[in-house]
Write a protein that binds this DNA or RNA. Structure first.
Lengths: 213, 213
DNA sequence: GCAAAAAAGGGGGTTTTTCCCCTTGTGTAG
DNA sequence: CTACACAAGGGGAAAAACCCCCTTTTTTGC
């Protein structure tokens, strides 16, 4: 019987190499490659001699090209490749981004090896594996009546500058706009995000990873 | 030849179990136990039938009782146990906290298995293993001429409130102080932390984990 | 294809908050 | 005795926040 081929994309070498050993103890699977970030992985996919794995284990937090970017790229270029996301992040936003970009499942790294193996088998056989946490999020996404907040590029730019010690005047200069326009951006965002002060905006930005500190 | 006994404390089951396999491929070592947080580990240490490992691999980010707390407990109760910290965090504060509390080394999880094995051997033989990143921090700690910033309890209280949408007047009410006293706290902190605005204070607080978001 | 709507940029003016400097009283530890 | 942290306050300038208003372009809905 031919083994199911697994590929690992994770920047934590200690983890990916160790995980290889764990997988090698499962008789149904074998690891056919591992990469330390999305860039290395996508480059490999583009190579001539690339042999498709059955499942890709994709980490979310990676340098250079992270899991979400990689997922987007795969959606565009190789939507047939099956990805099981593997991460420590359990926040809704990250999980939903991975799922909506085509990940077939999302496992936390504190999953026990038995469940992990089950997930691999399900992804291979049924095509997906959704844990309770993921399906929970999917359900209340449906009940949310599509009220998701979309920030425009220019707004994001403004938010990033608002998360510094700059005054609004300085921000205006930085964005080549009149301070009055900046005034408008602020008012708009305060209303849209239900905030009252710039402090709130900063907290919102950090919470939603618009800026990283 | 008797093998060197390794104990793993990490909440990421997938990682700790996988790491066990990796270690089992090293002929000099064997894993003699693993725990999913500091509490489980310290309980085990207290147990009658506890057999001391030669090296403890300790994760920093864990629920219930994290690496730093565990390190403090070990320093108090079992300073003879050798700990090699293993984490994804590479910020100076975390690393220094682990080292000053007695960790014999601090490895990042993106270390390659070869270096990892070297580190284990060095900790066992020489008693410590400091990577460049750690010794770098140690050196500029020495050059810092002990100017570390100590925040008083009341100041921390103020900072926490400053990281909300409250006005200074509301903060004053919350702390049962005059707004003018609050003014003093702010001025003091701005000078002490080299900040100019409340935004800066918020960013500082988040960066130094005074508040969590 | 055209109107309506939404997005992007700007203006004037007011109130509130923030920020900064400087002073005063009060315990208290050296 | 005095230096020092802590609490409180005054005055004033500068930002920030909050109003209502305007034009122009781009997008979108029949």
């Amino acid at each position: 019987m031919e083994k199911i081929k697994i590929m690992i994309v994770d920047d934590h070498l200690l983890f990916s190499q160790s995980l290889s050993f764990l997988i090698s103890t499962f008789k149904e699977f074998e690891v056919c490659g591992s990469y330390i970030n999305g860039k290395e992985f996508t480059n490999a996919v583009e190579a001539e001699n690339f042999e498709k794995p059955n499942i890709i284990l994709l980490d979310v937090n990676m340098p250079i090209m992270d899991g979400i970017e990689t997922m987007k790229w795969l959606k565009q270029n190789h939507p047939d490749l099956k990805v099981l996301a593997l991460s420590v992040n359990d926040d809704e936003e990250t999980i939903m981004k991975m799922i909506t970009n085509g990940a077939k499942g999302y496992l936390l790294k504190d999953t026990d090896p038995k469940t992990f193996k089950e997930a691999l088998l399900e992804v291979y056989n049924k095509g997906f594996y959704y844990t309770e946490i993921v399906s929970g999020f999917l359900i209340n996404k449906l009940n949310q009546t599509e009220n998701k907040i979309i920030l425009k590029e220019r707004e994001v730019e403004f938010i990033k500058l608002a998360c510094t010690e700059k005054t609004y005047k300085e921000i205006a200069d930085g964005m080549c706009l009149s301070p009055k326009t900046i005034d408008g951006y602020r008012e708009n965002l305060f209303q849209k995000l239900e905030l009252k002060t710039r402090i709130g905006l900063v907290l919102y930005a950090i919470k939603h990873k618009i800026v990283c500190i």
